[in-house]
Design a protein around this nucleic acid. Structure first.
Length: 758
RNA sequence: GGGCAAUUAGCUCAGUGGUAGAGCGUCACAUUGACAUUGUGAAGGCCACAGGUUCGAUCCCUGUAUUGCCCACCA
């Protein structure tokens, strides 16, 4: 056997081999690692747990995923080496709507259409697709060195998880925190589903603003195609221009398709300074108008259908798409003398689907909503009281602001890919599912959309035998699925409750008995590490649902990392072609180098700039470590003779150096305890290269030739070397473990479970 | 419209109430020595601007500018 190392570090020969060794050792699981006898924590090993943000099962890992893998793996390896029972639980998200969009593209490529496939078939194909993808991502996580416990891996569509998720739905319903209501929702005309408020983007557009004559008033609108049914004209009660009009007063006026009876409404929501200070309202297609109509109990009428086509009320324009109808309507208004003027440069924001960019049509629909305010209040308090710490601190403000202004959450989606809503309806009653379209019939007879829907006869895990009201056996399950964030929002407790050791996976109320060992041992988890871009989508909802379901916060610390950008500060995207594939660069320069590049300069809440140059820099660092190790190994072959001849006696200068090393240990430990990963990594880099390699090793070189000083020099180098390998291990696990395995000490363990220096 | 952050060397970023730091890049020199994926050294900065607090401000306060981001139902 040869301990000779090659001149250069070759990660390809090392990484897979080392990962297999770790995985085989079982040390990724919390129960496998027994702290050594000399570890002060051995009598009461505390737990440390992180639930991995589940990557989408619909695509490969991107560089942003590599950031979370790196930071979480650093935290986990550090705590494991400190002797804690450490659990890092991996999992995958079915990613409902996102995955549907990905799959649609795949179908398109194959020349197939979603409408040609039955829902059951589509679901099955997507499930297969997800399972295939999962395998790819699992391999990628291994390649990045993730020391997570694969035996506990979960998927959001695992039956145990689904059970917990739907239990929460039922419980929320019973607690009256969940309701089915006809409210205005964001409807994506292209994707034929509703979207939550977070899934829409606002885009600034410059469009004409039309001033129309409405009886004695002039009203402004950017959307004349919605105005057919307008029968209320609203103004501020203090507006002197309209002082002579009274609230509730009616008048008749000529409108687009003939005469209408209009009612005057005086309300303070009106901004007197906008346009003419008077407006008509369209409650069916505008959230603000909807709110006003609800509050003042005004009639609402649909104008546009779910395909973005005009309904019967539009008369000659019925069945036209908005874009086609708008200019024609304006023309008619002009011809009838109802068009006062056009402001061609009206700048305003329109809501668009965050995936396809198409304008979102606000519509009134029967949907499921979670009543957020009571949940939000508790979530606010938990952070106020410091039960959850947010890093960086400034995101607290953002978090509070969102929760204090929260609106009810629409959690039903009209897609097949997801967890079905556990609600059943009586087949006899009128029931129009939210995805069924009532299309206007072209011709003289045109129908309007039906809006009736039945109340669910049962919300529960299983359908009832028959309708409790009429005895009908034909019960229909709600065709919709849950917003994917409704399940991922329960991820911390769902994954732990569904833990392999638990026989049951049910908690009946917040105060109920804890039923799984994993839940008992690891909940609340210690750290939730994720990107700041999903603070609302995910973090806030996990806190709300976690508090609701378990009575406890789901995690103690939230660490928010930034987005990865290229060296020109551009967001990485496929269309820009500036995407760095984490696995590709790991293959080229080694995983350890990529991990360091993703850690140094990565401050919480700040975006991180990464370039291939930076990764190369840390590839060089890996090589530096490698060669310093070669040097130390070259001089560590001791013969009995040598050892007998000389004694280890540190000089004053040696002790100074060792003191510096000890300071490094303390600082690194402190930084890792407080999640200052970037600091620790940067300091280690400098210390290793510019102190240990440049100064300490250089100073020892002449001593290694002196018979008297030889052993002392060797001992000093070995002390430095082993300590530094341990400190570097969380950041650069592969190279440090590989070298560790080649060190000559006897009875050594794997570095992954070595004791953290103190 | 509201909020947040940033502004330090050519680039990416640390940092501290007491004469400014690193990496990369640049330039010069070194070379079979653990490592050229190297070493030694050098050049390079009114720490955005204007006020204030202070014996002293890059750091604390106020304002301004520029940039980036988030939130938002003015038709």
């Amino acid at each position: 056997m040869s301990r000779e190392l090659q001149q250069q570090y070759n990660p390809k020969e090392v990484e897979d081999k080392i990962y297999r060794m770790w995985e085989k050792s079982g040390y990724f699981a919390p129960e496998a690692h027994q702290p050594r006898a000399d570890n002060p924590d051995r009598l009461k090993p505390k737990a440390f747990s992180i639930i991995m943000p589940p990557p989408n099962a619909s695509g490969a890992l991107h560089i942003g995923n590599a950031v979370f893998v790196t930071l979480q793996d650093i935290a986990v390896r550090f705590q494991r080496m400190r002797g804690k029972k450490t659990l890092w639980l991996p999992g995958f998200d079915h990613a409902g709507f996102e995955a549907q969009v990905v799959f649609d593209k795949k179908l398109e490529k194959e020349g197939r259409r979603r409408s040609e496939i039955t829902k059951e078939q589509l679901y099955k194909e997507m499930l297969d697709f997800a399972h295939e993808n999962k395998k790819v991502v699992e391999a990628q996580l291994r390649k990045l060195g993730a020391s997570c416990d694969w035996s506990r891996e979960k998927f959001t569509l695992d039956p145990e998880i689904v059970k917990i998720v739907t239990d929460t739905f039922v419980k929320l319903y019973q607690d009256k925190l969940l309701y089915r209501g006809e409210r205005i929702v964001n409807w994506c005309v292209k994707h034929q589903t509703t979207l939550s408020d977070l899934e829409i983007r606002h885009e600034e557009r410059t469009e004409p603003l039309y001033y129309l004559k409405y009886g004695p008033f002039e009203i402004a609108t950017a959307r004349p195609e919605t105005k057919f049914g307008d029968k209320y004209v609203v103004m501020h009660p203090k507006d002197k221009r309209y002082a002579k009009f009274k609230d509730g007063e009616k008048f008749e006026t000529e409108w687009i398709n003939g005469k209408v009876t209009a009612t005057i409404v005086k309300d303070e929501v009106i901004d007197m300074n906008f346009g003419t200070g008077a407006m008509t309202i369209t409650p069916w297609h505008d959230p603000a108008d909807f709110e006003l109509a609800e509050r003042r109990k005004l009639d609402k009428e649909p104008i546009i259908d779910r395909y973005g086509r005009l309904l019967a009320i539009a008369g000659e324009f019925a069945c036209m798409k908005i874009a086609e109808a708008r200019p024609k309507i304006v023309e008619k208004l002009k011809a009838k003398g109802l068009l006062a003027k056009i402001d061609p440069n009206y700048k305003h924001n329109v809501a668009v689907c965050y995936k396809c960019g198409n304008v979102v049509e606000p519509l009134i629909m029967p949907q499921w909503f979670v009543k957020m305010q009571p949940l939000a209040e508790k979530a606010i308090r938990a952070v106020e009281k410091g039960e959850i710490k947010i890093i960086p601190d400034r995101y607290k403000k953002v978090y509070f602001h969102w929760l204090r202004n929260i609106r009810d959450w629409n959690i039903s989606r009209q897609i097949v890919w997801g967890i079905r809503i556990p609600a059943w309806y009586c087949g006899k009653k009128v029931f129009i599912t939210s995805h069924q379209l009532v299309r206007p019939v072209v011709g003289p007879k045109v129908e309007t959309v039906h809006t009736q829907f039945a109340d669910p006869v049962l919300v529960g895990e299983k359908p009832p035998k028959k309708c409790p009201d009429c005895g009908e056996n034909d019960l229909v399950q709600d065709p919709d699925v849950l917003d994917t964030w409704f399940s991922s929002g329960q991820w911390p407790y769902a994954t732990l409750l569904a833990g392999k050791q638990s026989g049951k996976s049910e908690i009946r109320n917040p105060k109920s008995e804890i039923v799984s060992d994993d839940f008992k041992n690891f909940y609340p988890t210690d750290l939730m590490e994720t990107g700041y871009d999903i603070l609302f989508f995910w973090v806030a909802r996990m806190i709300m649902l976690g508090l609701y379901r378990t009575g406890k916060v789901p995690f103690r610390t939230v660490y928010l990392h930034g987005l990865v950008r290229d060296k020109d500060r551009q967001k990485m995207s496929k269309s820009k072609g500036n995407v760095i594939d984490p696995l590709g660069v790991a293959e080229l320069y080694g995983t350890d180098a990529v991990r360091m590049a993703l850690t140094v300069g990565n401050l919480p809440g700040n975006d991180i700039i990464i370039s291939e140059e930076k990764i190369k820099g840390y590839r060089n660092f890996a090589n530096k470590i490698w060669n310093a190790s070669r040097f130390v190994l070259m001089h560590s072959a001791k013969t009995k003779d040598e050892r007998r001849k000389t004694k280890v006696r540190f000089t004053v200068e040696d002790k100074k150096m060792l003191k510096k090393l000890n300071e490094l240990v303390k600082q690194t430990t402190k930084d890792l305890e407080s999640y200052r990963f970037h600091h620790a990594a940067d300091r280690l880099y400098h210390f290793f290269w510019h102190y240990y390699a440049d100064k300490v090793i250089e100073k020892m070189k002449p001593k290694l030739n002196s018979p008297e000083q030889k052993e002392t020099a060797k001992a000093l180098l070995l002390e430095f070397h082993t300590t530094l390998l341990k400190l570097l291990h969380p950041f650069m696990p592969f190279i440090t473990e590989e070298i560790w395995q080649r060190l000559p000490q006897k009875n050594k363990k794997m570095l992954i479970v070595e004791n953290w220096p103190s």
